Amino acid sequence: MAAYLSYAAIALLLLVLYLSLDIMGILSRRNKFDVDGRTVLLTGGSYGMGRSLAALLSSRGASLILVARDPAKLASAVEHAKSHAKHPSTQRFTYISADVSSEAENERLLKEATAWNNGKTPEVVWAHAGSASPMLFVESSIETQRRQMDLNYWAACYLAHKTLRAWLYPETPYPAQTKTDGEKKAQPEPPRYFIVTSSVIAFVNIAGYAPYGPAKTALRALCDALNMEILLYNGARRSNKDTGTSPAPFDIHVRAIFPGTIKSPGLEQENKTKHAVTHLLEESDPAQTEMEAAVAAIKGLERGDFMTATNWLGEVLRISSLGGSKRNGVVRDTLGQWLTSLVWLVAGPDMEGKVWGWGKKEGMPEFRPEGSR
């Protein structure tokens, strides 16, 4: 028993040392999301955080294909991204107008993007499109709930399905990766990235987001599954067994971004339908500009994080609700879970008490079904 206690004490000291070095920035990390010279397809890239993401990706040397519905906004976003180009003479920019809530439109936009990219599926595909319609559940229509799922879940799911198939099983099969004795093993291509923008609501849903939260929570679950499932193909690339189907000559990484409150025209639209009790629950939440959220997202990708929350509160919520999700850092996330489990002993009842207290103070809410306001 004494020996076990000694080992535990040493392990604890090592954990504290690691955290201290990490916090001080001594443990530097290389950029794990280098987009210089690569093509990025970004849905929802015409305004808000998406427009800022496009500018940041351009400043890092990426060629861009922006996707949204409004051609005028897309053209403006493309020009904005061009103005931030790292290599103005070699980077390329275009846009595709599409309704990403349609499966057929996702198939079309990916084909058009591939053709524009000289027959090559873009190396980075980012499903960022989304929109919230916050309101009380009983007041929302079933149509709105379906639309929220279509745009905030199915749009990304359709794009993931078609992109991963294109990367893993292209129409023209990859050449067999064979080598004779004495030959050097072929160098793999840089990894491909499929990125999804979810929301901090995926970690903890609250009153007033019932129409929106389930879609974003489903996105998180999809990313958890894909992150594990893609290892099958990444592993197959390293296998010596010939199955008759050549694996892709690159690894694939799945990443998820979780923004919180963003000061944007989208937030102004959300506030038109948001119930007062939801405002109460969010009144102390940190709010970011579109660019601040975009910068945090890119930094998380460059660190190699699987799940990136764009502000401190989102990071606390992420750590507190990890479950079986992949950890960004075993030490940080494990210690963080211990701490946040204690925080929720206070935070959970406090939030529930605010909602209960609102009902007690204000009485039965007037029933205002969607469309009657």
Rank of each mutant, 00 (worst) to 15 (best):
19 L>C: 11
19 L>A: 12
20 S>Y: 13
32 K>Q: 13
34 D>Y: 06
45 G>K: 04
64 L>V: 14
64 L>R: 04
69 R>C: 06
70 D>K: 12
75 A>T: 09
80 H>E: 11
80 H>N: 08
81 A>E: 08
85 A>Y: 02
88 P>I: 09
98 A>E: 07
104 A>G: 04
107 E>V: 12
116 W>N: 05
122 P>D: 06
124 V>Y: 00
133 S>V: 15
142 I>D: 14
149 M>N: 11
154 W>E: 03
166 A>Q: 11
177 Q>C: 07
185 K>G: 11
191 P>F: 04
193 Y>E: 09
202 A>E: 01
202 A>K: 00
208 G>T: 07
209 Y>V: 10
209 Y>E: 03
221 A>P: 00
223 C>I: 14
226 L>E: 02
235 G>I: 12
237 R>Y: 11
240 N>P: 09
248 A>R: 05
253 H>R: 15
264 S>N: 04
266 G>M: 02
273 T>W: 01
275 H>R: 06
278 T>K: 00
284 S>E: 13
289 T>E: 06
298 I>Y: 02
300 G>H: 07
303 R>D: 15
307 M>D: 14
314 G>I: 00
315 E>R: 10
315 E>A: 14
319 I>G: 05
327 R>E: 11
327 R>W: 08
334 T>E: 05
335 L>V: 15
339 L>N: 07
339 L>F: 12
346 V>Y: 10
348 G>D: 14
354 K>D: 08
360 K>D: 12
369 P>N: 02
